[in-house]
Design a protein around this nucleic acid. Structure first.
Length: 374
DNA sequence: AAGCCGGGGTT
DNA sequence: AACCCAGGCTT
């Protein structure tokens, strides 16, 4: 004898909400009802875990407490506060959007779906999250947690990698929101996915809605949700130059800024080139030659050696960088120093720049090994 | 629809 | 090593 659809729905909404009000974590953004704070937290939380976000969120709202402050800040300052969080376009989009809010809405975060969805970096999830959490509007906020919870509770075989599935989940989720409880209920749904209904081994005995869960009843909770596989990351091989300064530039290293768009946009790095495959990577001579050719194009004369002084791997979602570092010298340091995009940076200036983790690691290793004990 | 975009924790 | 994470943008 199975329960009716209506009973299953009511059980879910009521029990989940009760559980959340009892068990909810004390998170920084839950201490605020400021729509701007909610917004910042939601952008940071995209594809990023709560524990990772907490320190970033606190620093960010401390430095940029309201839309006006963020709108007026230099972009490099914003990027520096995002350093290490990843997906750096989020930071630039957020600032672009905040400037729009200051100009068009007098600094007030929009409270309707049309206007808020038009903001850069605000997609269906984030729009629903802000409207529900900050304004308590009955809008769904469907993320990976919510799709996992609903897939299991209703035992749905739909592929959650498909956009059409998310659309369906939004209708389902909206219908579950108890009257006047959108803010807490949407967070409850995500909290359950994060704390109980976890991807690999859900804690079903502790689940407040286990008695209505169809997947659990059928013993299928561990096979849901269905998600088509992501492609494997493609390995690439790169050779970087560690150009040490001499004379007035002693202790400094030549670095450059990445392009305005694309991967790791506007962050800083060691000058480097990509070689064709692992064979060329191993030979070192190809890397040495390409480094010299590429540096000549940039107007920077670099003479590299064939000695390895550093090696690191940087794993992205869609590719893997394998990097070897060769010592090098600049043919003309004075000329080099003035080239756009290139700079000599020493340990004391290091923190004034934003670095991808892999170059932070390599440069830190270098600086440490060259500490001068006077 | 598929690819691009970081970094780190879990299993 | 594979998978996932309070996703969104571009093509």
């Amino acid at each position: 004898m199975s329960m009716s659809d209506e009973a299953r729905k009511n059980l879910f909404s009521a029990e989940l909400l009760k559980w959340y009000k009892r068990e909810r974590r004390d998170l920084p953004w839950r201490r605020s009802r400021d729509p701007y704070h909610i917004w910042v937290s939601e952008i940071m939380l995209q594809q990023t875990r709560v524990d990772t976000v907490i320190p970033y969120f606190n620093r960010f709202v401390d430095r940029f407490p309201n839309p006006k402050h963020l709108a007026d800040a230099p972009e490099e300052d914003v990027l520096k506060h995002w350093e290490g969080l990843g997906y750096y376009s989020r930071a630039r989009n957020l600032q672009t959007a905040v400037r729009e809010v200051v100009e068009r809405y007098g600094g007030q975060v929009p409270d309707n779906k049309k206007d808020i969805s038009s903001l850069k970096g605000v997609g269906p999830y984030t729009a629903g999250a802000i409207l529900s959490i900050a304004y308590n509007q009955p809008e769904p906020a469907v993320d990976g947690n919510v799709m996992r919870v609903l897939s299991r509770y209703y035992c749905l075989d739909d592929d959650i990698a498909k956009p059409s599935t998310r659309i369906g989940m939004e209708s389902l989720a909206q219908g579950l929101i108890p009257s006047g409880e959108a803010a807490d209920f949407n967070q409850a749904l995500m909290e359950l996915g994060a704390m109980v209904c976890t991807p690999k081994s859900p804690s079903c005995p502790e689940c407040p809605v286990r008695s209505g869960c169809v997947a659990l009843a059928e013993g299928r909770e561990r096979e849901l949700p269905i998600k088509t596989k992501a492609k494997k990351a493609r390995p690439v091989f790169r050779v970087a130059a560690l150009v040490e300064g001499t004379g007035p530039r002693a202790g400094k290293v030549l670095v450059r800024q990445r392009p305005d768009t694309g991967l790791l946009a506007r962050m800083w790095e060691l000058p480097h080139v990509e070689v064709r495959d692992e064979i060329e990577w191993d030979s070192l001579s190809v890397g040495k030659r390409l480094l010299q050719e590429a540096s000549a194009v940039d107007g920077v004369g670099i003479q590299a050696t064939e000695r390895i002084v550093g090696e690191a791997q940087h794993i992205f979602t869609h590719l893997v960088w394998n990097i070897r570092v060769l010592p090098a010298v600049a043919v003309d340091e004075e000329f080099v120093a003035d080239r756009t995009g290139y700079r000599w940076v020493g340990p004391d200036e290091f923190e004034n720049y934003s670095w991808p983790n892999v170059f932070r690691k390599l440069l830190t290793e270098y600086y440490i090994s060259h500490i001068n004990i006077n």
